[in-house]
Write a protein that binds this DNA or RNA. Structure first.
Length: 853
RNA sequence: GGGCGGUUAGCUCAGUUGGUUAGAGCGCCACAUUGACAUUGUGGAGGUCACAAGUUCGAAUCUUGUAUCGCCCACCA
């Protein structure tokens, strides 16, 4: 074994070993009797390659999988990628635009552009898959899925047709979010909001119009059909129900209805709202309530004014129309006020341009219509299902419920080309939903494609060969899934929707929500900041095990965390520590590692009993941070610092070393799979590399608990630490062999002498000494000729003051009747024990001080 | 405007049902080249757990309020 662990020399080989063993495929597990335990990997988007967030996800998922696999379950982790319809097309188009192709769709046409996007997607995909491998993720590659492959497309079409026939998917004329740059709709959940300074104009439609309204988008006001006021507003009550004909400088006069609506805030602005039915979501809702007011779209999908805006405006870009209309208002003395305000602007998250509400014919999923045969709406089904899913941390359950409660119909049609084509066919007035072209001549398929979440929402069963049922039956619902909180709405909710509709069951039993990784300053990683870190580069430098450990340690579920190099370096050091412990153990003589247990053995086995129990519980609860911290501490501060040091003492050996190491490797394997595989093979725990992943999970009961030995060893530890501290405080070089008088058993004596570098019980007569009291044992450290007694006097006084302080608190408790009455027995007994021990310590320290005086 | 979360050592963060004198890593100070490891070892300094009130024998932990930072949602024209 090399002096230091070098991940670069081992990881590729171990990955290959895992590939050959195929244990990640449940059909190749040594035991086929385990309980099925399926987890679906959230498929990374092929918009790009993996970033650190994916490294976190893979670490979480794989640690979970490896633990459950070792406990004997039939584990299945399905890997995959997401074609990410609009985001991917946007990425490719934006790249082309940067290269000077201003209108890629016009330039290349549908077929050619789709081919270009496919090429880009395939490239990203293959990079992503190799990155997942390097992260050590034990997924079943034979079941690799892609949201846009043939199998998944078939499921998408099936489900669409079924929902269409059930009346849950409909085509409707409604206001949707339109991106001019992207020439497509966008769902409500994919808008980003930005605060921008803008001008708020207050004006009247005409001189004789009695009510003033305000707007930040004057050009849309050419399409106003009503003014809404609050029914209780005494200023405007007289006008409610009336109509006014106004000249807005367009070709034809406008008819403005004055309507009453509770949603109008009479204290805001003029207390009246100009209703632009066609270009505002809220206004469109009002139009649906009051259809008599009418709707006049004035802006086209290209961002230019429509003929309905009037001859003077027709064809003008909206920005020019804005100027022109404001000028007209000004010239006609209708402009009452111009005010600079900060306004929340909705932007397309992928194309970055302002979103325009536009009325259009689009496809929607109706969430408020009863599902045939279920007697409930999709919304109700989603709420019910949500209650059956365990979400960690719990607080996100509320987030989910709130969102579902406010859910609107979901616009699923997109006007981009990269994605599942809507399986709807038209011929004249006939409309048929079908995966394949209906029989007969003259059928035309809908030109639009489906929202990407329409396909990824079926991920939990589309990956299992649905609709053929055997596989679905075994592995659905998934046992567990992990995801970032930012996709609870986008993805989790949609998986619940499709699973409850299609299969009548929840998609997964448990959801583990993680936060996002930020940089050292707490900023999000982003392209524009240029603070991105390539996980593969981190792996190249520190190794996969170190990366995995560094993103899991010290992080609570659902919380964001910061990523920086020092953390990875720390994890790398730990991995190297483990390696060196193994190296030491492997150098021990074989006969030293068998035979009756020594005191350090009894102590470490007792500790191991507790550690196995703690770590198992932590993994069971997906407390990855807890598991890694317990193991970090045990391996470094107990196994290495005490047990291995004790093992160097010839008379004591360390017979359980192999046993402890074997157990530690198993416990650590889910977190640090590579180094543990290498060591397991080196030590002969496994026949071949790649087998540790199916080793049996350790059982706490396998390790004998010996409280008596633990106490004895604890005294040794405290004694050694105290003597070392004494040397430091008296500035005595550590190598100085002090004489110490103390009553101890043989094993303890050997340990203390070696570890504290002292000689026990040699010199009986002496002039002065320091006193150390631990666990009822008094040790006299002889200081003749080494240090002045005055120093010890000061040290003792400080020590006594400290013990006194703690005694006070304990005594107050014991003298408190209520404490004695109410505290549980366990706590009381413990407190009394400590009290007695402190009293003894105190007495001995005081006596010692007296002697000096 | 509504909802949620954070505030614990110089820094980054754990702290699972309330129970010894609140922990870790990094950083800092001092010491150490001892036969697994300098990707090291040993010892140490450093915290009134944001603040206030309350519940309790006992609060970092539960309740209420305040401050402050952050996130999400919302049709503020």
């Amino acid at each position: 074994m090399d002096k230091a662990y070098s991940p670069q020399d081992h990881e590729a080989r171990i990955t290959q070993a895992w590939d050959e063993k195929k244990y990640s495929n449940p059909d190749h597990l040594p035991s086929q009797n385990g309980e099925p335990h399926a987890v679906m990997m959230p498929p990374p988007n092929v918009t790009g390659v993996l970033h650190l967030g994916h490294a976190l996800e893979n670490s979480i998922m794989d640690t979970h999988m490896r633990y459950h696999r070792m406990t004997g379950k039939r584990t299945l982790l399905i890997p995959g990628t997401d074609h990410a319809a609009l985001p991917t097309q946007a990425r490719v188009e934006n790249n082309l635009k940067k290269q000077g192709i201003t209108n890629p769709r016009q330039e290349y046409g549908r077929e050619k552009l789709v081919a270009m996007i496919r090429e880009y997607a395939e490239n990203s995909k293959s990079t992503i898959l190799s990155q997942i491998k390097r992260l050590g993720t034990s997924c079943d590659w034979s079941r690799l899925a892609y949201t846009f492959d043939e199998e998944r497309s078939r499921v998408v079409n099936d489900v669409f047709v079924r929902m269409f026939n059930d009346g849950l998917i409909y085509r409707g004329y409604r206001v949707v979010n339109w991106s001019i740059a992207g020439q497509s709709t966008s769902s409500d959940d994919e808008l980003v909001y930005e605060e921008r300074a803008t001008t708020l104009y207050t004006f009247k439609y005409a001189k004789d119009f009695p009510i003033a309204v305000a707007t930040v988008l004057p050009e849309t006001k050419l399409g106003d059909t009503a003014v809404a006021v609050h029914p209780d507003d005494t200023r405007y009550q007289q006008y409610i129900g009336k109509t006014f004909t106004v000249d807005v400088g367009a070709e034809t006069p406008r008819t403005i209805h004055v309507i009453a609506d509770e949603s109008v805030d009479m204290n805001y602005g003029t207390g009246a709202l100009g209703v632009t039915s066609a270009h505002a979501t809220a206004d469109f809702d009002m139009y649906q309530k009051h259809p008599e007011i009418g709707i006049i779209p004035v802006i086209g999908t290209d961002g230019r004014m429509l003929p309905a805006a009037g001859k003077a405006y027709n064809g003008l870009p909206f920005k020019d129309a804005r100027k022109k209309f404001v000028q007209w208002l000004h010239d006609n003395d209708l402009l009452i006020e111009e005010k600079e305000i900060v306004h929340n602007v909705a932007l397309s998250d992928r194309y970055g341009d302002e979103i325009w509400p536009m009325p259009m014919e689009q496809w929607f999923v109706n969430v408020n219509k009863e599902v045939p045969g279920k007697g409930k709406t999709l919304k109700q089904l989603m709420l019910e299902a949500g209650a059956k899913i365990t979400i960690t941390p719990e607080r996100f359950a509320k987030t989910y419920t709130n969102w579902i409660t406010n859910l609107h119909d979901w616009c699923i049609s997109r006007q981009i080309w990269w994605g599942h084509r809507i399986p709807v066919w038209y011929r004249g007035a006939e409309v048929v939903a079908s995966a394949v072209k209906p029989a007969g001549e003259g059928w035309m398929q809908d030109a639009d494609t489906l929202d990407t979440w329409f396909s990824s929402g079926m991920w939990t069963f589309s990956t299992l060969g649905y609709p053929s049922s055997a596989h679905v039956k075994t592995f659905h619902p998934s046992a567990w899934i992990q995801m970032g909180y930012e996709i609870i709405y986008l993805w989790m909710a949609r998986m619940v929707l499709f699973s409850t509709y299609v299969l009548g069951e929840i998609p997964f039993r448990e959801v583990y929500i993680h936060g996002i990784l930020r940089d050292k300053q707490g900023r999000k990683f982003s392209k524009s900041l240029g603070n991105g870190i390539d996980p593969i580069q981190v792996i190249d430098e520190y190794g996969t095990d170190a990366l995995r450990l560094s993103v899991l340690k010290g992080v609570a579920p659902g919380n964001d965390s910061r990523f920086y190099e020092e953390k990875v370096a720390d994890a790398r050091n730990f991995v190297n520590k483990l390696w060196n412990v193994a190296r030491f153990v492997s150098q021990m003589k074989k006969d030293e590692t068998t035979g009756p247990a020594t005191l350090p053995d009894q102590w470490i086995l007792t500790r191991l009993h507790d550690v196995v129990a703690e770590v198992t519980e932590a993994y069971e609860k997906n407390q990855f941070s807890q598991a890694s911290e317990t193991l970090y501490h045990f391996v470094w501060n107990e196994f290495a610092d005490w047990y291995v040091e004790a093992a160097k003492i010839e008379s004591l050996h360390a017979r359980q070393a192999m046993n402890v190491l074997r157990t530690v490797l198993a416990l650590l394997h889910p977190l640090t799979p590579f180094v543990t595989e290498v060591i397991a093979k080196e030590m002969g725990f496994t026949q071949e590399e790649g087998e540790l992943m199916v080793a049996e999970w350790p059982k706490a009961e396998a390790f004998a608990v010996d409280h008596e030995s633990t106490k004895r060893f604890a005294i040794v530890q405290e004694l050694v630490t105290s003597i070392r501290a004494l040397k430091t405080s008296f500035r005595i070089p550590p190598s100085t062999q002090l004489q110490v008088l103390v009553e101890l058993g043989e094993e303890e004596r050997a340990l203390v002498e070696k570890l504290a570098r002292v000689t026990l019980g040699q010199k009986q007569s002496h002039q002065h000494h320091a006193t150390i009291v631990v666990g009822g044992v008094t040790a006299l450290v002889i200081l003749d000729g080494v240090v002045d007694i005055e120093a010890e006097k000061q040290r003792l006084k400080k020590e006594i003051a400290e013990v006194e302080g703690s005694l006070k608190g304990i005594q107050a408790k014991l003298n408190n009747e209520k404490f004695m009455q109410s505290a549980p027995e366990q706590v009381r007994v413990k407190t009394q024990e400590i009290h007695e021990e402190r009293l003894v310590t105190m007495a001995k320290l005081r006596e010692s001080l007296k002697q000096i005086d």
